[in-house]
């Protein structure tokens, strides 16, 4: 099961060869998550993401990539690790050690997330617009018309048909549900957008349309984005940089083109070839 080279430290391009003028928006160090005592889902992972960049995380199911995303969204507590966010109010504070209410504020104001399964991200029986309004309500907005306007704007930005904005997600197609999630994620203009297999399970044609929307939105807003996918095509289309994960560890990382065209790690090679 364990490849011979797995435990040997190998030189990986730890930092992307880009000219960096400002500190990373997000810095995660030594992330560890175990389940049930002996299952290590995430093993000493470091992540850096710079303002405006799109970081892809690839790997097969069970590689720990979705766990990383849940940890970044502060849904679970890690067993070890530090998480810093370069915004004035949070400077120098490890987000993992904040109390529940402070973490909720970070999740409300600074992070947006789109899940593969819309049930995780949406209230399926409330109105679609209400799903977005709730986020603003939690943020303190108390004017009904402002809530309506914001929901309308966010849904329009994610190219959702506005004549259906008050339909509950349970009555929408899969593609539309993802657009509602996206609208909810960006409604408060977060610093960080997390995408967990956002198009997996959609029809190929719908998938392409949703990906177009994601790409356009990311370009327009410049939101720092971390996208998790097992689909190298999705990563190739969206990500500037990519991290390859296996057995909870990062086996290779670098610029997307570089890693996908010229993989160094044996597992990455296998992954890229399987795709072809």
């Amino acid at each position: 099961m364990v490849t011979s080279g797995r435990d040997a430290p190998r030189p990986v391009s730890a930092h992307a060869p880009v000219i960096v003028t400002s500190p990373p928006l997000l810095q995660v160090r030594g992330l560890v998550k175990r389940y049930g005592g002996h299952v290590v889902a995430v093993d000493r992972v470091d992540i850096e993401a710079y303002a405006g960049e799109v970081l892809g995380i690839v790997g097969e199911s069970g590689s720990g990539k979705s766990t990383v995303l849940r940890l970044l969204n502060l849904e679970e507590r890690p067993d070890a690790g530090e998480y810093f966010f370069d915004v004035p109010a949070l400077a120098g504070r490890n987000l993992f050690t904040l109390d529940r209410m402070a973490q909720r504020r970070v999740r409300t104001f600074d992070i947006g997330i789109v899940y593969q399964n819309p049930h995780l991200g949406l209230r399926m029986r409330n109105t679609s617009s209400g799903n977005i309004a709730e986020r603003l309500i939690v943020a303190g907005e108390r004017a009904y018309r402002t809530l309506r306007l914001a929901a309308r704007e966010a849904l329009a930005a994610s190219e959702f048909p506005l004549d259906r904005m008050d339909d509950p997600p349970v009555r929408l197609s899969g593609g539309m549900q993802q657009r509602v999630q996206l609208a909810k994620a960006i409604a408060l203009k977060p610093k960080l957008l997390l995408l967990d297999e956002p198009t997996t399970g959609l029809d190929v044609s719908v998938q392409a349309l949703v990906l177009d929307t994601l790409k356009r939105l990311q370009r327009e807003t410049g939101v720092t984005t971390i996208i998790v996918s097992h689909d190298l095509g999705v990563i190739r289309m969206l990500a500037d940089r990519v991290m390859v994960m296996r057995y909870g560890r990062v086996v290779e990382q670098g610029l997307t083109d570089q890693v996908l065209e010229d993989p160094q790690d044996a597992y990455t090679q296998q992954l890229v070839h399987a795709k072809l």
């Binding site: 409330n126 109105t127 617009s129 209400g130 309004a133 709730e134 309500i137 108390r142 009904y144 809530l147």
Partner: peptide, 11 residues
């Protein structure tokens, strides 16, 4: 709770 008020206004 606020969301439920919002939905009442919508509906």
């Amino acid at each position: 709770l606020w969301l439920s008020l919002y939905e009442q206004l919508v509906r």
